[in-house]
Amino acid sequence: MSEDPRNIDLEEGMEDTLEDKYLTFKVGDEEYGIEIRYVTEIIGIQSITELPDMPQYVKGVINLRGKVIPVLDVRLRFGLEEREYDERTSIIVVNIQEMAVGLIVDTVSEVMDIPKSEVEPPPRVSKGAGSRYIQGMGKVDKSVKILLDIQKLLFEGELEDLQKLAEK
């Protein structure tokens, strides 16, 4: 990106502002964040129609105003223990590659600015199952938000899963 302000037109400017904004949510004890530009809406938990032959974290499909969208449980995606949905459970609808997908999280927190200067690269060593979806660590005041790479969160690991299946 150029430093010259004249080179930044309005749209780019808008994108820039979006770029540093994150929607944060809680899963388990940790706070996570995803880039706000992917988020289209946040809805409460709905009745989910299960699908056969799906990885465990894909809970099924929901009816979002006449549209059928798949929902996946971020908890299960991280390999955490399953938990009953309650009134704080939310579905974050994200739009990626022209597909709408719902992410089930324990609870949605807030939208916040995390400038790039405050984002550290992901730790090189990590034990957690969720670590491979990490895009960076955002420092906000004294706390740290785990910023997720939504692309990886949705798609990565399928290949490995398949390979594991094949090995079996």
């Binding site: 699908l51 056969p52 032959d53 799906m54 990885p55 798949p70 597909m99 949705l154 798609f155």
Partner: peptide, 12 residues
């Protein structure tokens, strides 16, 4: 079913 479903699994 969403394209996503086709990418993560193979529904029979």
């Amino acid at each position: 079913l969403s394209e996503y479903i086709g990418q993560v699994g193979d529904v029979h």
